[in-house]
């Protein structure tokens, strides 16, 4: 039992933090404990969760991608324009996902082939895509979308349940594959030690491109699940999305240096960081404090984890 706890110290700490957070509204606030609260919390955080799953893979492979906020809005706009052009929704979905894969792979190529450090390469693509969107749309929202765009034409209640189910299935499959298949483990190997991975017959460059491409696909799916919640598309969306996602991954225990991390930790990180704002609104806390508290939680989480690791390494 203790060894299990030790092995999953981060998950245990996160779970207790989440439990504490969700117990806070017990003190004097009505209306928090309703199925609908949790359902909409989940729906709101689905895009972050999916992108964070992809980001976990990229960070485990020893890289990082700060361009996903821009990729996110590009995905949304592409989906909107395609739907507007009369393409049936299933094709819109496929085309958007393909675009996501291309954008991701492009980042991967800049890193693996042009050898630009990931943070710089994706900084450049972040700026390029964001300004490209502004240039192309002039800030105008995309309107007059076909009726089948919002919620894929389903009633919103049905659609929400479908989105949750789809995201849960995707995330579950991804988490399982990442931990338990040799394809998934290869990313850990590359992130742990490039050279060692090469010697056992892996191609680190290909792995890096693949990781970025997977993140691109995840971000495109996230964009689809986010933007189809509305009848129009906001072209200024996704600002700061990358930081939300990276923070969740890091709080979830993935090592920024690569080689270590779990999708389950990421899930817990998304739940914790994604629920704070809502819980605080229910507690009637002044929203001016929200950002400071989020920063403090992130610092405390990583510091506590590092301290605990040191302790257990000694003991």
């Amino acid at each position: 039992m203790t060894s299990l706890l030790r092995r999953h110290s981060r998950e245990a700490a996160l779970l207790s933090a989440i439990a504490a957070l969700f117990l806070l509204p017990l003190f004097g606030v009505n209306g928090f404990y309703a199925v609908s609260t949790f359902r909409s919390l989940a729906i709101d955080n689905l895009p972050v969760l999916l992108a964070a799953a992809g980001m976990t893979l990229v960070i485990v492979a020893g890289q990082i991608d700060i361009s996903i906020g821009s990729q996110f809005v590009v995905g949304g706009i592409a989906a909107g324009l395609l739907a507007k052009s009369g393409l049936p929704m299933p094709f819109v979905v496929l085309a958007t996902i393909a675009l996501g894969a291309v954008l991701g792979a492009l980042n991967g190529l800049l890193v693996a082939a042009a050898r630009i450090p990931a943070i710089i390469a994706t900084l450049a693509t972040m700026v390029l895509l964001r300004n490209g969107v502004l240039r192309a749309t002039g800030g105008d929202w995309i309107q007059n979308l076909p009726a089948g765009f919002q919620w894929f034409g389903l009633p919103s209640g049905v659609a929400q349940v479908a989105y949750l189910a789809a995201a849960a299935a995707l995330f579950g499959a991804f988490a399982w594959a990442m931990r338990n298949t040799s394809a998934g483990r290869a990313f850990y190997a590359v992130g742990c030690d490039h050279e060692a991975a090469r010697r056992i017959g892996l191609n680190p460059s290909r792995q890096v491109v693949a990781a970025f491409a997977v993140l691109g696909v995840a971000t495109a799916v996230a964009a689809l699940l986010n933007f189809t919640r509305y009848p129009t598309i906001e072209t200024n969306a996704g600002l700061g999305f990358e930081l939300k996602v990276i923070a969740a991954v890091v709080v979830g225990g993935t090592a920024i240096t690569g080689g270590r991390g779990s999708p389950i930790g990421t899930l817990l990180g998304v739940i914790l960081l994604g629920s704070i704002g809502t819980v605080f609104t229910f507690l009637h806390v002044n929203p001016a404090w929200e950002k400071a508290i989020q920063g403090a939680i992130l610092l405390v989480a990583v510091v506590a984890d590092t301290a605990f690791r040191k302790e257990s390494a000694r003991g």
């Binding site: 890091v250 920024i256 950002k291 400071a292 920063g295 992130l298 610092l299 990583v302 590092t306």
Partner: peptide, 21 residues
């Protein structure tokens, strides 16, 4: 031994958040 990217990602929100608060 917390990686610099993480420390300063935390203080990135913390400092701005304190300023706002």
């Amino acid at each position: 031994r917390v990686p610099p990217l993480i420390v300063t990602l935390g203080t990135f929100s913390l400092y701005r958040g304190l300023a706002e608060a």
